[in-house]
């Protein structure tokens, strides 16, 4: 079936997204230990990239939009990272007197 031009890229992307959904769901049942989380987030990242590029057409938008999209992500990393300096090290350094 020959898809009209406006549906081609969306359709291909959609099939890829559904395939990735199957993989991520199935992959959750594999005994990978901590890598289950890594796999799940990695596949989520790939799906997001497909949505960003194919559906949201980020790369065809003004470059300023890339900067702000990136900034949102980068600032989220700051929040996670610096909060991590507390939560990841609480049991690491002993406090004098305890």
């Amino acid at each position: 079936m020959r898809l009209p031009a406006y549906a081609r890229i969306p359709a291909l992307s959609w099939l890829a997204l559904l395939a990735l959904l199957t993989i991520t769901c199935g992959g959750a049942f594999l005994p990978l230990g901590p890598f289950n989380l890594v796999l799940g987030l990695a596949i989520a990242t790939i799906k997001t990239t497909i949505v960003l590029v194919a559906f949201m057409k980020l790369l065809k938008s003004p470059p300023l939009t890339w900067i702000y999209a990136g900034a949102g992500l980068f600032w989220l990393m700051i929040m996670l990272g610096l909060a991590g300096t507390d939560y990841l090290t609480r049991t690491l350094l002993s406090v004098p007197g305890r």
């Binding site: 300096t85 507390d86 939560y87 350094l93």
Partner: peptide, 8 residues
């Protein structure tokens, strides 16, 4: 955590 205190 004191380590976080150092960083901040």
């Amino acid at each position: 955590s004191m380590y976080a205190g150092l960083v901040f």
